[in-house]
């Protein structure tokens, strides 16, 4: 079910601006990889290139190669819509569809792609909500608007929505930055459970969070404003946080911790 991502020598541009330069890394299947680094270092930008979401922004394009197992995500024959169906994404701010009920939100990805069978949908909705640890809280009000849930519940709803289309990989762009500590904890628990089924990549500003949830951590940095962001190093999380290879990684981590 989960797949490995291999990135080699990736540059990301927005128009003429080079946002990220020369990233090569491997994201291991059935594990959590965290991206950390200062604001503007390109970690979110890079994350979006993993399911071609950067193409939604005018002028966004990449050079280099991203492989999902043996599939080239940027092959000319590859349709970005198919890529995104396989590699799901959870965003910084919970964004349930405001016109839809809880049920409809989870079923949205399937329905919008043409699945009509009520039984199939019921099954997947229940399974996804259970998978997102939300089922018990909402099972009695599935027809209520999704926007009526609390922030943390909304984010778990968005995760349920993302896993309902049964992706191989789940990308999370600072999924807890808009949430309170208790909701954050719930999401972190959920990430721990999800990694047995999915390859998970999470961007976070919170280093304790990276230390808590991830198996491997990648540190991004940029030399100066206006310069492209780069991958400084990627390694086992314990190694990055205790004994990183690069001085700048250590500075960043200790600066935050100290």
């Amino acid at each position: 079910m989960a797949k490995r991502i291999d990135v080699s020598d990736l540059n990301v541009y927005y128009g003429a601006f080079k946002a990220v330069e020369g990233v090569s890394m491997t994201v291991e299947p059935r594990s959590v990889t965290a991206f950390i680094g200062p604001s503007g270092c390109g970690k979110s930008t890079f994350l979006r290139t993993l399911n071609r979401m950067h193409e939604v922004i005018p002028g966004g394009r990449v050079e280099g190669k991203v492989m999902l197992d043996d599939q080239d995500l940027y092959a000319p024959s590859m349709d970005p819509v198919m890529v995104r169906r396989t590699i799901g994404m959870v965003f910084q701010r919970p964004n349930p569809f405001p016109t839809m009920s809880i049920y409809d939100n989870v079923a949205a990805g399937l329905r919008l792609n043409g699945v009509r069978n009520k039984k199939t949908l019921d099954g997947i909705v229940e399974q996804s909500l259970k998978g997102a640890n939300l089922w018990n809280e909402v099972k009695d009000r599935l027809s209520k608007p999704g926007a009526g849930l609390s922030g943390g519940q909304q984010q778990r709803l968005c995760i349920a929505r993302a896993i309902a289309v049964q992706p191989q990989v789940l990308l999370m762009d600072e999924p807890c930055s808009a949430l309170d500590p208790i909701s954050t904890l719930a999401i972190e628990d959920l990430i721990n459970e999800l990694k047995s089924d999915y390859t998970i990549v999470i961007v976070t500003h919170n280093m304790q969070q990276a230390a808590r949830v991830s198996d491997r951590t990648a540190f991004f940095n940029l030399k100066a404003t206006g310069e492209p962001g780069r991958l400084i190093e990627i390694d086992e999380t314990t190694k990055i946080f205790n004994n990183p290879n690069e001085q700048s990684t250590e500075d960043y981590i200790s600066g935050r911790f100290g």
Partner: peptide, 13 residues
């Protein structure tokens, strides 16, 4: 789990 199914489960090109 039943996979995605449906006439319009295409890429929508």
């Amino acid at each position: 789990r039943t996979p995605l199914r449906g006439v319009s489960a295409s890429t929508g090109r």
